[in-house]
Design a protein around this nucleic acid. Sequence first.
DNA 1: TTGTAAGCGTTATCAG
DNA 2: CTGATAACGCTTACAA
Lengths: 341, 341
Amino acid sequence: MTTLRDVAQVAGVSRATAARVLSAPELVADATRAKVMQAVQELGYIRNSVAASLRTTRTGRIIVTVPDISNPFFSRVIRGVEEAAQKAGYAVLLGDTRNEREREEQYADMLNRREADGIIFLGHRLPTVLATILARDGGRAPVVNGCEFTSTLGVSSAHIDNAGAGHEVMQALYGLGHRDIALILGPADSPLTRDRLAGASRAAAARGLAANLIVEAGDFSIESGRRAAMALFARSPRPTAIFCFSDEMAIGTLAAARTAGLSCPADLSVVGFDDIQMARYVDPPLATVRQPMAEIGRKTVELLLGILSGRQVQPVSATLPYELIPRESLGAAPVNRLLRS
Amino acid sequence: MTTLRDVAQVAGVSRATAARVLSAPELVADATRAKVMQAVQELGYIRNSVAASLRTTRTGRIIVTVPDISNPFFSRVIRGVEEAAQKAGYAVLLGDTRNEREREEQYADMLNRREADGIIFLGHRLPTVLATILARDGGRAPVVNGCEFTSTLGVSSAHIDNAGAGHEVMQALYGLGHRDIALILGPADSPLTRDRLAGASRAAAARGLAANLIVEAGDFSIESGRRAAMALFARSPRPTAIFCFSDEMAIGTLAAARTAGLSCPADLSVVGFDDIQMARYVDPPLATVRQPMAEIGRKTVELLLGILSGRQVQPVSATLPYELIPRESLGAAPVNRLLRS
DNA sequence: TTGTAAGCGTTATCAG
DNA sequence: CTGATAACGCTTACAA
């Protein structure tokens, strides 16, 4: 293995000079620099990043933890993270936590072991390891959250206005004549679920229809959506619209509707959340709330870089725009409701 | 920051002893060990992994590059990788290459910079950086491929028998009376595409139907599947079955069929590849070839660990089982073909 | 069983 | 503009 020492020797300069050529070439005389570069070429020298890290205490890596990498929403966010990180010269350490607290803690602990310079966590739980760091360093702690905003955490975050989105979907449904509307939620303890539910409830209450709003639990997966929908179909009155907190659950709902012999949107309107790629290709194309997934990812990196560079010392919350995308799964409430049911 | 030196001091032992307590506790007397552990607790000592790496020349990390992390097939494979790596005490450095050669090279180069102990690449191109390493170290090079097997690379690999799968799907289609069959391929330069195509062609040739086998290009994405299918529908005779080399392209094909007013499977049978989760929830449920995605991921890690431990010095190719999953998108060829078209 | 001491390869400080 | 030198924090012969 060739080290800087070899390069220096071959170039006939000191180790210090050789190092300078690589990190601050402008400080070195042209001739010297040329000699060193030549030696680097000849020897095929490659900097040992571990040694550099030890000295500088910076690794050039960031950890990203995600509840489920195979969830298309998260994989898009990750892509944004990866892109922005790469651009800024950082590598991404991926942690799939499977929504398990222990794995979240393990990954967070890598920060303590200096395996990375910062962490972006996409789940809704703040690992205690990070809580400790935050308690100590506050807004200077290199910790950023994506998607799940809670002001009380004191963590920088990038997300959409989930309450606003929840409200807007309900308004659209009411505008189409729906009265009996069901929600299929995400994990109950997540701020994101809580916020969307709050927005939806507010809209219902404003119309005096709070009692007509039905709620089923879900976990974002297709299968949980299918199951929740089946449960909803058994109710009376059957809801005329289902608002799912993820597109995958909405796709499960569409599958359930087919099984139950319900036609969408004639008998049942379905609205999803996220606008994953698949949404426009299912039958019928799925109305949904578009989240800027890649942008959320990029933004979390930007926030983290701000902290790492010392520019940012207070938590910042970045609210990105969402957009309601009407597609064919969303239609007017059945008019002959009573006859049908 | 508390270091081993602090721990040693508080415990009243040498740095060496303190280090031993952490890495080889059995070599240390009970009483001494207790003192050290106590000091570790008191001070909240956490080992600095960078310093350890510098000394041991092992990082405890592996790089995984993937053409597109938001592709559900790859994200499942990654999950398997991540799981197995974590279990073995390794962290995963994720590289989304977007199918760009330059990014592939960049990530591969991290191996040279000692950012990781080994690399698993899921694309079909062997980065030149890795080729160099392989040329030097042969089967001892910590490089493993997933999914795209080519014996000439001299790289350990985990994959299915793609030629066999291609052949089996065609046999099933012929058995159902299909004669005019189209394929929507993956990237043209990938061994995986080449092998499936070879298997399919062999089946066609064996029936004397090679001339009836139509081929369209695709890139695994939903949209490419939709486009290719539209092109196929314009042909005469129109194929009665389309075999797509990914489920996403098959889902694009189903969407195209709806647009074209074709009913599946009455007018058109569609078979996908991979068996991603979505496959069973689309309309109609998608027949496909199931790949053991997580298992492929786990296996690549196992192979890499074999190399890293020095157990394995020759390239090994692991062929995992696939399974044809018949679902409703696969049916008999239309009998009244001539009347209809 | 424990301690001494020599690095791992880089970067940063300080003098020249 | 360049060189000598001292870390960074840990591991590991080797010696005691």
